[in-house]
Amino acid sequence: MTTMKNNADADNAAIMLDAIALAPTQDDDTTLKEAWLLGFDTETTGTGSTDAIVSASLVLRDPAKGYAGDVVAEWVVNPHRHISEGASRVNGFTDEFLEANGAEPSDAIAAIAAIVTAALAKRIPLLAYNAPFDVRMLAGDLKRWKLKALPDELLVVDPLVIDREISHRHGKRTLTYTTEYYGVEPHGDFHDATADTTAAVDLIRPMSTLYPQVGNLRLGDLMDWQRTAHKKWKDSFNEWMQSRGRRPITDNWL
């Protein structure tokens, strides 16, 4: 870990907080196609409840400017725990690299949470593909390092939940396949936190074009709409699982 790397993280976080301070405060009537968004993605030591964040990216999107106007902050984090072989194969991080180059989690995780909290105060939704995973990973690290929790009332956009409800398409729904379906060209390689974050944010425009009901979703209706959509998908998926003698899933959305 170097002082230069830590200073760069702090500078990026400060720039993003300044950008959020200058952003408009949105209200319940703001539509998704008109909304500022804060994209979020993590890479982690694994997928379990005791795993931790090793890399994170936040992308602030002004809908009037699009990708060219994005404000980006990213972190590499020393989780002070072993990264699983499976996670390392996917994200490319190793214990040695994270120990040498990662920021202290108490600093990095606090900075990420401060930005998310500032955005939510402006009613700027947090956007993440398969959002429960990233939100719960962040909440777990905040608890682990005894940091201030996220606000109780979240405002989240999950393109995976939206796509399941509107597209009724066959095939996989990984971020890679979903961006291909909507014609989104990635900016970088998948499983790089910033590339994944940007790709997820980029999905909103083509989704809103192909399915105007998505673009016209009001922020005040967004959470309940996604909870209902997830429950509808889960019930259907569990019918299919049980018909094959497999255990149903029990998780809820946020």
Rank of each mutant, 00 (worst) to 15 (best):
A200Q: 01
I124C: 09
S208R: 01
Q242D: 01
G86P: 03
Y67I: 12
K5Y: 11
R136G: 02
M16D: 12
F190Y: 15
P63H: 08
T194Q: 08
L219Q: 00
D251C: 04
D62Q: 02
K33M: 05
G48T: 15
M241Q: 00
E104T: 04
A110T: 15
K172C: 06
L60T: 04
E153D: 11
A13F: 05
F93Y: 15
D9P: 04
W225V: 11
S106A: 13
H168K: 13
R136D: 03
M16W: 07
T178C: 01
G183M: 06
A19H: 10
I53Y: 06
L138S: 10
K143R: 14
G245R: 12
V161G: 01
D192R: 09
R247Y: 06
A73E: 14
Q242P: 00
L175I: 07
E34P: 01
S243M: 09
A23R: 00
K65Q: 15
P212C: 00
L254A: 12
L98F: 10
G245V: 12
L138E: 12
S88H: 07
G39P: 14
I162R: 05
A128Y: 11
L210P: 06
S208C: 01
G220K: 01
I109S: 15
T94S: 14
Y177L: 06
F97H: 14
I166Y: 04
L155W: 15
A73N: 13
N101K: 13
P206A: 01
A14G: 07
A199T: 05
D196H: 12
L219M: 02
G39W: 08
A87F: 09
A110W: 09
G183V: 10
E43Q: 13
E185A: 14
A14P: 05
Q226R: 10
G215L: 00
Q213A: 12
A8I: 10
D251K: 04
P79M: 14
D95V: 02
S208E: 00
A21F: 08
L58G: 11
A56I: 10
K172F: 08
A111H: 11
L160C: 00
G39K: 09
W253G: 00
L142N: 05
A23S: 00
D27L: 04
R244L: 03
T117G: 10
